[in-house]
Design a protein around this nucleic acid. Structure first.
Length: 486
RNA sequence: CGGGGCGUGGCGCAGCCUGGUAGCGCACCUGCCUUGGGAGCAGGGGGUCGGCCGUUCAAAUCGGCUCGCCCCGACCA
């Protein structure tokens, strides 16, 4: 039942993804600028919805927004050894401006720890200045070898939070609070995507961090997509940039910093997590258009009465339901049905002459809901106009929850337990693999060479107890989750 | 950056091997007619064939260089 021009997932998942991006009109390749995309209005509207949900949570937890320069003196990037090593290969430099060579080149920010660190060192003097809780919405640039719309582009949009704390524990609390109360909460409630929360291994952690945490989403081909990261930077950047404060005993201390970010990759996560062979599927809380209305009529008289009925029906929707009336005259209803399914609108409402007569409307959810008509037939139900606003609002909730449950079931069905390395090798192409782990960084690298899979996280929720390491056979106290990553 | 594939109206493609004034489907425009799951008919507009250089009387077609895109791999949010 795939739409024209949409490659079925089972045939070619990568091509399916690109077909959705193009078909739903989310982005255009910026073919004149390597690795970049244009966020078209629908794609950008998704980003705006993501910004709203996150910004609300970021501010509710005491942070404020600010903005730092796009250009960073190259020397700044060099100050934290591990950080340089991690980012050097992918930074773009500005060496010439104003018609002459610059005495010191700037780099275009790949992330802003360094320049923000410089300013924080000026702003922080006393323990009374802490915690310093600032977030920035910005674009960044990383010269990646291979790009993919939303998932990895040379330039991308994100938010990066940068905070300063008095000690390790306070920084750690912040790092975890962001992971749980901001990122995981947003992903699960607004994006309807279940996330796996955990700690990154040494091999996968942020360049320059003491410890990195992440939320990981499972895509429909069973791979892992890092959807957000939160880092306890320890005193590494505080030392590199001399962020110090006088404590209560007037002793000068190096501060502890954190940073955390999510990017336009979340748009890719939403696409990969929910969409199907008919096109994009959007969770109602994120959808720029929640209900599309398709009027049905045969002549001008019918058209007038139908549009009039729609006006009355939607009069009380403003501010409650985001809807759009597709009044294009030259297209048949059937064409519109398919087009809006491709664009992922959660609910379609049809209003025709029969509905006007019977004071009903036809409602067709984008996904099959629990307890409705099984696969094959597209579910469409006729409901009375009386009480419709509430009915539609309820449907939005049911679709939102339905999406979450569907994604969760999928993840559970594609999460395996490996007791030995052979099992892991066999399972890792199909999904997440949980196993006991006591290996080294070198062991992890060897596994990556042999299976393409890496440890995505050491889950925060550990079962306790002990077992045999999947690779070394040694006694292990930690469960790791392996997967192939995007 | 390595291996593979591909650049021809907005989109998808044919034409290239064997050089000779650029074609098809969809989309678009106009009109009629239709409209509860991708309607029909008629008329019409739109492309210096990714770019540059070369071979030739003549290049979408042959040769060289270059740019870009897609897939696979190494790097990454």
């Amino acid at each position: 039942m795939a739409k024209e021009g949409i490659t079925p997932r089972a045939k070619d998942y990568a091509q399916w993804y690109l077909d959705i991006v193009r078909g739903a009109d989310l982005a255009d390749y910026a073919e004149v600028v390597r690795g970049c995309i244009v966020f078209k209005p629908t794609g950008y509207a998704l980003w705006e919805a993501i910004q709203r949900g996150l910004d609300e949570r970021i501010k509710a937890s005491g942070h404020v927004n600010a903005y730092f320069p796009l250009l960073i003196p190259k020397s700044f990037l060099m100050k934290e050894a591990e950080h340089v090593e991690g980012f050097a290969p992918e930074v773009a430099e500005v060496t010439r401006a104003g018609g002459q060579e610059l005495s010191e080149p700037y780099v275009i920010r790949p992330t802003s720890e360094t320049i923000i660190g410089y300013f924080y060192s000026k702003w922080v003097r006393s323990w009374r200045d802490l915690p310093l809780l600032i977030n920035q919405w910005a674009n960044v640039m990383r010269w990646e070898m291979r790009t993919r719309p939303f998932l990895r582009t040379t330039e991308f949009l994100w938010q990066e939070g940068h905070t300063v704390h008095v000690d390790h524990d306070d920084a750690e609390r912040e790092t975890l609070m962001i992971l749980n109360d901001v990122y995981a909460d947003f992903a699960e409630k607004d994006m309807a995507l279940p996330v796996l929360r955990g700690i990154k291994t040494e091999k996968e952690k942020f360049a320059g961090a003491l410890r990195s945490y992440a939320i990981e989403v499972m895509t429909q081909d069973g791979r892992a997509l890092q959807a957000g990261t939160s880092h306890n930077l320890g005193q590494n950047f505080a030392k590199a940039f001399e962020i110090t404060y006088a404590d209560k005993n007037n002793q000068v201390q190096h501060a502890w910093t954190t940073s955390w970010g999510v990017s336009t990759r979340l748009i890719g996560a939403t696409i990969m997590g929910h969409s199907d062979d008919d096109g994009l599927v959007l969770p109602p809380r994120l959808a720029p258009i929640q209900v599309v209305i398709v009027p049905i009529y045969k002549n001008d008289v019918e058209k007038a009465t139908v549009l009039d009925a729609i006006d009355k029906i939607t009069a009380e929707w403003r501010g409650k339901i985001r809807f759009y009336l597709d009044a294009r005259d030259h297209l048949t209803p059937g064409f519109k049905f398919n087009e809006w399914e491709l664009k992922g609108v959660p609910l379609r409402m049809e209003v025709g002459p029969k509905d006007v007569q019977k004071e009903s409307v036809a409602l067709a959810p984008r996904i099959v809901l629990e307890g409705s008509v099984p696969e094959g037939k597209k579910p469409k139900s006729f409901v009375p106009q009386a009480g419709l606003t509430e009915h539609v609002s309820n449907l939005m909730d049911r679709i939102q929850h339905g999406l979450y449950e569907r994604a969760l079931k999928f993840r559970e069905a594609h999460t395996f337990q490996a007791n030995n390395y052979d099992e892991l090798k066999g399972q890792v192409d199909a999904g997440f693999v949980r196993c006991w782990w006591a290996g080294s960084r070198a062991d992890e690298e060897k596994i990556q060479d042999e299976t393409k899979a890496t440890i995505r996280v050491l889950p925060i929720d550990q079962p306790g107890g002990k077992g045999k390491c999947v690779y070394t056979g040694k006694e292990a106290h930690t469960i790791a989750v392996f997967a192939r990553a995007y």
